[in-house]
């Protein structure tokens, strides 16, 4: 079966969704990504949807699930390149995509991911220090 390629770039996985994002490909992507996040200890996933000409409620759910699953695996997901017409259409459709981070361009998305990854590791150090102090 056809699958969407997942590229690794440092701590980050890059996925470019092609025009033909059918149901089975979408579910396979969700599975492949989850596996790669764990196996490659990825800290971020960038999903580029600029080639997509529509997102329906099924795809919206898959994208939302990818973001949620990533979070459970200690990884952030950022969606980039959504066409304005799609943003308007899914809002009217009622798909909320709550909790999904977005950026307009791939570059801005990488910056956002790096910021989130960095501030998280800073936060950890900070928490440890605090624990030490409280003791």
């Amino acid at each position: 079966m056809e699958r969407i390629p997942i590229l690794k770039f440092g701590d980050i996985l890059l996925v470019t969704i092609q025009v033909d994002f059918h149901d089975r490909i979408a579910l396979a992507l969700q599975e492949d990504l989850t596996e790669k996040i764990v196996n490659l200890s990825a800290k971020g996933v960038l999903i580029d949807i600029s080639a997509l000409e529509m997102v329906d409620s099924f795809m919206g759910r898959v994208l939302g699930n990818i973001a949620k699953t990533s979070r459970l695996l200690d990884c952030y997901a950022v969606l980039v390149g959504m066409q304005p017409a799609i943003a308007i259409t899914i809002t009217e459709l009622g798909v909320t995509l709550t909790g999904i981070h977005t950026a307009l361009t791939a570059e801005a998305g990488i910056d956002l991911l790096n910021d989130m990854i960095k501030s998280k590791s800073n936060g950890k150090v900070h928490a440890k220090r605090q624990v030490a102090k409280w003791r």
Partner: peptide, 27 residues
């Protein structure tokens, strides 16, 4: 559906709404 919507001269936004509806109801 996309081809028809383009031919009829719908805006990009309306094409997207039409194709999304087709996907929902077709599913």
């Amino acid at each position: 559906v996309k081809m028809h919507a383009e031919d009829i001269g719908f805006s990009k936004l309306n094409q997207t709404k039409i194709v999304t509806t087709a996907s929902e109801l077709g599913r």
